[in-house]
């Protein structure tokens, strides 16, 4: 159908921003590669540290499968810290640089019986989101993700710091207005929404279901200029194997053979996820 090609040409038939130069593209690729290599090493270090401290990794699962941790609360030092929302949202550099601390806190919260590993080798992945029309600071999201495994099954524990300049909401955190904002980011709260208070901080705990991730508990702490959400996911999205292979490799449409079935339940309860979201040390 030539019409479709014509329509595509029309869509491209206008002013286009300049393509990044080859030197710029090469510089970004080099930086990303150096960062990946560095964080792979750092990720290995995190696993070793967790094993030494007995906090989470390499624990032999119990026969009946692991139960959610009794207490994923922060250390007493962390609990004494200021729990009020920050007046100024962090910059993306601050958020990205805080990934190592977030890994430490999430790892400490992993329930007994699970082993954990960084999902992407990066302590944090930060990305710029689409800039809203009218300018303003570019929004971004910083994600730290752990894969939790026990009895041959996998789930995920993840934090996402989202900075979009939106003022902290007031009133009911489970209201329709807030749901309209949050559902786009974390999925509809079809499994219910409640507000819990941890150390004086209100946390919105929403439960959602989707075919990829199973049951997902999302505990959100609203900040001045954004929010922090801790996800406890029953399962991990099934992706095909990563495309980072030589082009002459035989393409296999099969799902990743390393993928494991979902846990029987999310690895943390809503209260436990809320405690992590309320932990001030989770913020830069």
């Amino acid at each position: 159908m030539n019409d479709v090609k014509e329509l595509c040409d029309l869509m491209l038939d206008g002013p286009q921003p300049p393509l990044r130069t080859s030197d710029e593209a090469l510089a970004v690729a080099r930086r990303a590669t150096r960062r990946r290599d560095r964080l792979r090493i750092a990720g290995s270090g995190v696993a070793v540290m967790a094993a030494v401290t007995g906090a989470a990794a390499l624990v032999v699962p119990s026969a009946g499968g692991p139960a959610p941790a009794e207490s994923p609360y922060a250390s007493p030092r962390e609990r004494r810290a200021n729990a009020t929302p920050p007046a100024v949202p962090p910059t993306w550099h601050q958020a990205d640089g805080h990934g190592g601390e977030v890994v430490r806190i999430l790892t400490a919260a992993v329930p007994a019986g699970f082993s954990s590993r960084l999902e992407y080798g990066d302590a944090a992945s930060t990305l710029q989101l689409q800039r809203p029309h009218g300018g303003g600071a570019p929004p971004f999201a910083t994600v730290t993700s752990l894969i939790l495994e026990a009895d041959g099954k996998e789930g995920r524990l993840e934090s996402m710091l989202h900075s979009d300049g939106t003022p902290a909401p007031t009133g009911d955190l489970c209201s329709a207005a807030i749901a309209a904002r949050m559902d786009k980011m974390i999925g509809p709260a079809d499994g219910g929404c409640q507000v819990v208070v941890v150390d004086g901080v209100q946390i919105r705990v929403a439960t959602t279901h989707d075919p990829d991730r199973g049951q997902v508990i999302a505990a959100t702490r609203f900040l001045t200029g954004g929010f922090l959400t801790v996800f406890a996911q029953q399962g991990v999205v099934v992706y095909e194997r990563d495309g980072d292979v030589p082009p002459d490799a035989t393409h296999s449409p099969e799902p990743d053979p390393d993928h494991k079935p979902a846990l029987d339940a999310p690895p943390l309860t809503g209260q436990q996820a809320a405690a992590l979201a309320a932990n001030p040390a989770m913020l830069p």
């Binding site: 970004v28 990303a32 993306w92 990205d96 992945s125 930060t126 990305l127 710029q128 989101l129 600071a137 570019p138 971004f140 999201a141 994600v143 996402m160 989202h162 980011m185 999205v237």
Partner: peptide, 11 residues
């Protein structure tokens, strides 16, 4: 997963 993307455009 809209947020699952490495940063490549400087903010």
């Amino acid at each position: 997963r809209p947020w699952r993307r490495e940063l490549s455009t400087e903010p």
